[in-house]
Design a protein around this nucleic acid. Structure first.
Lengths: 137, 137
DNA sequence: CTGTCTGCAAAAAATTTGCAGAGAT
DNA sequence: ATCTCTGCAAATTTTTTGCAGACAG
């Protein structure tokens, strides 16, 4: 069995994802990486993202537009519950997780759940405030 | 303002999506279309899918793997609640919609919700049954 | 008729792969 | 020392675009 190694390229990608307040696309990551490692090849990004996914260190998913996004796996969010502000793109916590009720209901009907994904979008308190201030002018 | 026209290509794509019990990828659609219209160009599929999306006749979303899927818009599901069987890819109804509770809690905290999306995946009753029968052999 | 839509071919964009050398363990 | 990872270039795959003719309204 092959053994995954730690390289500065991989570590850098992981650091960038760890410090990003929001999910990043391959291009987001690439743009950020080349400021520190200008000679890196894009294929290295692809290969490391695959590697990190298979090591279960990051999550891959899909936002509203046409791109895949990657984000560090957050142990407090192994259920994928996202709340995203349309305006500032920050992500917030779901105040409650309703999935267990659903799970119970569905398993009663004979469906075995392996995964779930909840994404809620809207405008956060801060952006609403800004918006109101602008409108008032 | 340009006016959208109805062509047999577009109608065929819409019919195929209407009659499909499950979401289809661009390739799924293309493979199906060429059995009736062998000379159609793939770019026509892309263009018509864009057109149908902008007419709000279909929904676009993302399943577990790396592909975009399209599905006819179902008026009973304007909230995007999907339950998908990993095995047969059929889609089922959510037995209950928990979003209103969450909505209340979040709006209390000052977040204004514009959209939400719930996807639950797993194995359906039928596929579980098949699986058990196979395992038993 | 007036434009939009189509098929084709070509272009552009995104992702994957082969390889020889660099670097991690 | 071994074997994985990297950068580069090329190959492949996916999506978009330009154009002249077809065809819907």
């Amino acid at each position: 069995m092959e053994h995954k190694r730690n390289t500065k390229q991989k570590q850098l990608i992981l650091d960038i994802l760890t410090n990003s307040p929001k999910p990043m696309s391959i291009n987001d990551i690439y743009q950020k990486v080349i400021t520190e490692l200008p000679t890196i090849a894009k294929s290295t990004i692809y290969r490391n993202i695959d590697s990190l996914l298979s090591q279960n260190l990051i999550d891959k998913y899909y936002l509203n537009d046409n791109e895949l996004f990657y984000q560090i796996k957050d142990n407090n969010h192994h259920h994928k519950h996202y709340v995203i502000c349309d305006s500032c793109k920050r992500m917030f916590d779901l105040p409650l997780c309703p999935i267990h009720e659903i799970e119970n209901a569905m398993e009663k009907e004979g469906f075995s759940i392996s995964d779930h994904y909840i994404q809620i979008s809207g405008t956060c308190k801060d952006c609403l405030k800004k918006k109101n201030e602008t409108d008032a002018k």
